[in-house]
């Protein structure tokens, strides 16, 4: 792998993370008001009794942002805190820290997104490849229009429809949540099954809506690859159909798909967040929804930064894997 390429990707990674932290710091300030203080005051005024911890919170807030210090000092302090993963306290759930809330909800989101993305990518890509392959069964062609239609629908809308049909009308699956209310998360088979049952519909709404996207891209690439000279050569050389399909066509058409995966991660994630809201799935999307409702500013900032970090890191990994998959890239500037 050329060192120049790696450095370039690393540079982009650092730039994005820095940009996210900077926007996190400056955006609240451009509006000219102080949403955090407003929220604290409002909470203190509305709760009637002396809210435990409100003084500490204001103090913490003053200390953390050092409001009496010049802006550039505040900015540097903020960057330093972010680098240490210190996002402060949650306003609505004091004295819980933002990081501890994130640690609880992140596994749910990562699990949901990882499984659905891998499944959708694998199934969609294979379906797209078969659709463009002249010797694949005919019935596949009828699958394409519905898949394509589904891919134009946002995940969460599909989720709403799925809940209504399968959970409300047919009562086959639970309506909402990540596990049966009242159960305590534990490491046991029955709990895992319970979680699985709750995850079917959220996963299905992401899966169904993204299959068509991968199938469409793959079909286009396969058509291009099939027109290449080496395909004609391989065919004339008398390779088996299976070898032609997997080693010649699929392998070469797969590379742009991987780039597309990197580019669409952010989109996938945004979609998954809304699916979580619709299903009250206990992941980071639901936490974000509640944080917005309660105006928990530190929590919102922490979530935004963590997600950007995660997506950017995943993109970096994919970017670094890409040249390994495609030997042609290695020689670009060697």
């Amino acid at each position: 792998m050329p060192i120049r390429y790696v450095l370039q990707r690393l540079g982009l990674f650092v730039a994005v993370v820095w940009a996210a932290a900077t926007l996190n710091f400056f955006l609240p300030r451009i509006s000219g008001q102080d949403p955090v203080r407003e929220k604290l005051m409002q909470q203190a005024a509305s709760s009637g009794y002396v809210h435990t911890g409100i003084n500490e919170m204001v103090e913490e807030y003053q200390r953390q942002f050092g409001l009496d210090q010049p802006l550039w000092r505040q900015y540097l302090t903020y960057l330093e805190n972010v680098a240490r993963f210190d996002f402060g306290y949650s306003i609505a759930n004091y004295p819980r820290t933002v990081v501890s809330i994130l640690a609880d909800s992140l596994p749910w989101t990562i699990g949901l997104l990882l499984i659905t993305t891998i499944l959708a990518f694998a199934i969609g890509t294979l379906a797209g490849a078969l659709l463009a392959w002249p010797r694949s069964p005919r019935f596949l062609q009828y699958l394409f229009p519905p898949l394509l239609t589904l891919s134009a629908i946002p995940f969460f809308l599909l989720g709403l429809v799925l809940i209504y049909i399968f959970a409300f009308q047919l009562r086959l699956l639970p309506l909402f949540g990540g596990y049966t209310p009242g159960r305590f998360p534990e490491l046991s088979l029955s709990f895992a099954l319970d979680v699985g049952k709750h995850a079917v519909l959220p996963a299905l709404s992401i899966l169904l809506a993204s299959l068509g996207f991968w199938a469409l891209g793959m079909r286009g690439m396969m058509v291009t690859v099939e027109g290449e000279d080496y395909m004609t050569f391989a065919e004339a050389a008398g390779f088996k159909d299976r070898t032609l399909f997997f080693s010649y066509a699929l392998r070469n058409a797969l590379l742009p798909q991987t780039t597309a995966l990197g580019l669409s991660l952010g989109q996938l994630l945004s979609g998954a967040l809304l699916v979580e809201v619709i299903f009250s799935f206990p992941g980071i999307g639901s936490v974000l929804y509640n944080a917005i409702r309660q105006f928990d500013y530190f929590l919102i900032q922490g979530i935004v930064f963590t997600i950007v970090l995660g997506v950017t890191f995943a993109t970096l990994i994919l970017d670094l894997i890409y040249p390994l998959l495609d030997p042609r890239i290695t020689y670009e500037r060697g």
């Binding site: 940009a19 509006s31 949403p35 580019l263 979530i303």
Partner: peptide, 22 residues
């Protein structure tokens, strides 16, 4: 553009909308 497109747009919009809040 490269930096901007790597950040999921919905998140930045959330941050912006929360900050404006009027």
């Amino acid at each position: 553009v490269d930096v901007g497109l790597t950040i999921p747009p919905l998140l930045l919009l959330i941050l912006l909308a929360v900050s404006l809040n009027t």
